[in-house]
Amino acid sequence: MIRILGKASSINVRKVPWACEEIGIAYSRADDGPEMAQNPNGLVPVIVDDDFVLWESNSIIRYLANKWSAHTLQPTEPRARAEVDRWIDWQATEFNSAWRYAFSAIVRRNPAFNDPRDIEASKKQWSRMMEILDSQLARTGAHVAGAAFTLADIPIGLSVNRWFMTPFERPAFAHVGAYYERLSARPAFLKHGRNGIA
C-alpha cells in the first residue's frame, strides 16, 4: 500500500490519490510523517512505497503510472508519451504561475498578495492560459492530450477546478466547460477534484 503524506486540501496532494484511484492502487493518506524530512523543500506531497520515498507531485504520478504499467494513462509510444508529459509540465510552469497571485489574493486572502495591479495581471494571464487550454480541447475534442483520459488530465483537471471555484468575473470557454463536465463523470475527480475545495 502506498502512503501519501500531505493535507487533502492541497492541489498537489490531490493529484496523487486521484491517480491511485484511476490506476487501482491501494493507498492511505496522512497529513504528515517522518519521511517528510527527506524532502529538502519541505513541501507536500511525499509518498512512501515500501522503502522508497518520493516527492514532487508530477514525478509521483508518473512513477505510479510507470510502476503499475498504466499505459492508457502514460503511453509507452514516445510521441504519445511526450504529448502527455508536455501538458503535465505546462500545468506546473505556465498554468500554475498564471493563477498563483490571483488565487492567493482572492481565495486564500493572503495579505502578501494584495496589489490590485498584480491581481489584475494574474487574472489576465490566467485567462490567457485558459484560452490556450480551450484551443487544445477544441483540437482534441475530448481530453488534454487527445481523445482518451491520460495522466495529463489530473493536474490540468485540478487547475480547471480551481478556475471554476475562484470567484471573479471570467470569460467563458465552451470547450473548457465541456471538459469540466466530462471530468465530472469520473468518480475519482468528484472525490479529489470537484469536491468543494479550490
Rank of each mutant, 00 (worst) to 15 (best):
S122V: 12
R108E: 05
S97H: 15
K124V: 05
E120N: 14
S122R: 05
G141K: 12
T140W: 02
D118Y: 13
R108H: 09
I106V: 15
N96C: 04
R109S: 02
G141R: 10
A152T: 11
N110Y: 06
S159H: 11
Q125C: 11
R128A: 15
L158D: 05
A102P: 09
A98S: 11
A121Q: 14
Q136P: 00
N96I: 08
E131V: 00
W99R: 15
S122L: 11
R100I: 13
H143L: 04
A138W: 00
R109I: 00
R128P: 05
A98G: 02
F149N: 05
R139G: 06
I119F: 07
T140M: 03
A142M: 01
A112H: 12
R139Q: 14
W163E: 02
Q125H: 08
K123P: 03
Q136H: 01
P116T: 09
I88T: 10
D153M: 02
T150Q: 11
S127H: 09
A112K: 14
W126S: 04
R108N: 06
A138E: 04
N114T: 14
V144Q: 02
W90G: 03
E94I: 04
N114W: 10
S122M: 07
V160N: 12
F149Q: 05
F95I: 06
D89S: 07
T140H: 01
W99G: 05
W163R: 08
D153V: 01
M129D: 13
F113H: 15
R139D: 08
I156A: 07
Q91E: 15
D118K: 13
V107K: 05
D153L: 02
W163L: 03
D89L: 03
S122D: 09
F164E: 09
M129E: 15
N114V: 13
P155Y: 00
N96H: 14
R109Y: 01
P116F: 13
T140G: 02
N110G: 08
T140I: 05
V144G: 01
W90M: 04
A105Q: 08
A92I: 00
K124I: 04
Q91F: 06
F164M: 11
K123W: 10
F149S: 03
K124C: 06
I154T: 11
A102L: 06
F95R: 01
S97V: 10
F95K: 02
A92C: 12
T93C: 15
R162S: 08
N110E: 07
L151E: 09
A138K: 00
K123T: 11
S104V: 04
N114Y: 10
E120I: 07
A142P: 00
I156H: 04
I106T: 13
K123H: 09
S135Q: 10
S127C: 13
D89C: 03
T150E: 13
R162A: 15
A147F: 11
A147N: 14
S135A: 10
N110P: 03
L137N: 02
D153H: 00
L137Q: 04
A121R: 14
V160W: 08
L151Y: 06
E120F: 10
S159V: 05
E120S: 14
R139N: 14
Y101C: 09
L133M: 02
P116H: 09
S135F: 00
V107M: 06
I156K: 04
L137C: 08
D134G: 03
R139H: 12
S127T: 15
N110K: 01
R139I: 01
L137V: 05
E94L: 07
F113Y: 15
D118L: 15
I88C: 13
F113K: 10
A148T: 10
E131L: 05
